[in-house]
Every structure is written in structure tokens, then in C-alpha cells.
Design a protein around this nucleic acid. Structure first.
Lengths: 135, 135
DNA sequence: ATAGACCCTGTACTTAGGTACGAAGTCAAG
DNA sequence: CTTGACTTCGTACCTAAGTACAGGGTCTAT
């Protein structure tokens, strides 16, 4: 099958059909060609495009950031140096996120190790660390 | 010091005053005693309570999860093992995110290295890769 | 005793990222 | 040629986590 309908694309990309229309409204997904009837006709690569968007999102990038990255290409004044700069900025973002997550991990790990997992909650170091009762 | 008004609490905990009321509505912050006038009177520990909430948020817990965590403590049947299980589940979430981020970092790093940063965008390997899966 | 800062409640608005719905048009199988 | 699944658009609705009033009451320093 050469082209996909919006429903087929939704299934293959594992997203809601409405999400695709939403992405199109947001300008994140380019408007595909249409049939005479107005039905959208997606090339198979659209599946990968959507998967890319979802992955980037899962890694903490907002749709707006993704949009910016994608829209750079459309601008005829953009050089590959611009793109590279953008990618390097994203890389710095990723490093920040990695540091934050590692900090969280360390903190939580310490707490779960300290917690023997026995006895009443009154002796749980996790709650002790997180909570100071106020009543 | 003794007790704090909501405004003082907000300042000391570095949150918006409305956020405090919001937490109270959500049941995350217990309702404090009131003066005759209806003014909230917070004990100084309330500052720590709010910091706890923010810390837990930073550790990746949503307000809903924090709420659940707090209500676990109230339930006399809860053991510290239950709490530990929750923390460990969160830890697994964090690990997943770390793996994904590292995968993304590797991919993006490769691309920025491959990109000479010169010439038109049509020759930029970073943009080429946007159309493709990034694993 | 009054100005100005603070607090009360309730409601509405915000941003992000979707989801759902209704009325109408289209496609393909039987 | 009908039926049922699919698509169109526009608009409305949703959750999370706040934030911003408005219209009133209270507190405190002068």
C-alpha cells in the first residue's frame, strides 16, 4: 500500500486519530496531499515522523520545541550550521535532564535502601525523609 | 514566629499563595486551624511540608501520587513495605527515562559530529535523520 | 479612625497536550 | 444500491498544576 489514510496512520503510529489532526493544526505534521474527496493521503514515512515526535516527547521535549526544530528546515535562510547549533542546544538540554534524573535516582535509591521494608510506616525512612507531619 | 499567615508561609516556602490554597483543596496540605477572623494559622512546620511536596515532585511524583503516598500513612494497615514498593516503582520509571535519554543523546551526538556545519540544509545529516527513527 | 496591606471565598482563566462528538460526505463489499 | 465503516470539519471538552481576579472582610501603624 502506497499511501495511508489518517486512520491507518493512527493505527500504525499507535496514536489517536485526533492526535494526528491536532499535530497538523499545530504545524508539527505537514499537511498531506488530499484525494478528490478531501481524504488525507499520507506517505508511509509519516509513521516514522510521528514516532519521532512521540519519542522526543517522552524524553521531555515539548511540542513547541519539536516544532521549532522541524520548522528550521523549512526556512530557506537556514544553513546546516543553524541546525547544528540547535541540535547542540538540545544536547545540552538532554544533559541537564540526565543530571536531574540522576539526582532523583540517587535520592530515591538511598531511601529505598534505608527502608528495610518491614514494620509500621512510622519507622519508614522514606516517609520520614519526605514528610514532616504538621497537625 | 509561632504561627504563619498564608502569605508568610508562601514566602518562606517559595511558592505562590494560591498554590497553597490549591494544595489544601487537593487535600495535599491539611487544613490549618483558623483565627476567629477565619485567617489560616500555620505552624512553622508547614514550610517543611510544602518543601516535602516540592521535593517529591522533583523526584518525579505527581501530586496525585504524593496524595496517595500521604494517605497510605494514614491507613493503619499500611506497612513500610508498601511505601518501599511505591518508591521502587518510581525508581524503575526513572531508569526507563534515563535509558531513553541516553539513547537520544547518543543519536544526537553522532549527528552533530557528522554535521560539518557548513553548506545548505539539504546536506545536513541532522535533518535527514529527523525523518528516520532515532534508535 | 483610617489607609493600605493582608486575608477570605468562589469562580474563571491559563498552558500543554490531547480527546470526544456531531452532522455530513465518501468508500467498498455484498 | 444499500449498508457500515471510515473521513471531513468545527467545536467542545478533559486533566494537571497552577494563577488570577473580584468583591468583600480584617489587621495594624500612624
Amino acid at each position: 500500500m502506497q499511501t495511508l489514510t489518517v486512520g491507518q496512520l493512527a493505527k500504525q503510529a499507535h496514536v489517536n486519530l485526533e492526535t494526528i489532526r491536532y499535530y497538523e493544526r499545530r504545524g508539527i505534521l505537514p499537511e498531506p496531499p488530499r484525494r478528490e474527496s478531501g481524504y488525507r493521503q499520507y506517505p508511509p514515512e509519516a509513521v516514522e515522523r510521528i514516532r519521532f515526535i512521540r519519542r522526543a516527547q517522552e524524553l521531555g521535549f515539548s511540542l513547541k520545541e519539536i516544532q521549532e526544530l522541524l520548522s528550521l528546515r523549512v526556512d530557506p535562510g537556514t544553513t546546516s550550521a543553524d541546525i547544528k547549533k540547535r541540535a547542540e542546544a538540545k544536547l545540552a538540554d538532554i544533559d541537564t535532564k540526565l543530571r536531574d534524573l540522576n539526582r532523583m535516582k540517587t535520592a530515591l535509591t538511598k531511601l529505598t535502601v534505608a527502608c528495610r521494608g518491614r514494620g509500621p510506616t512510622s519507622e519508614c525512612p522514606i516517609l520520614d525523609a519526605l514528610e514532616l507531619p504538621m497537625d
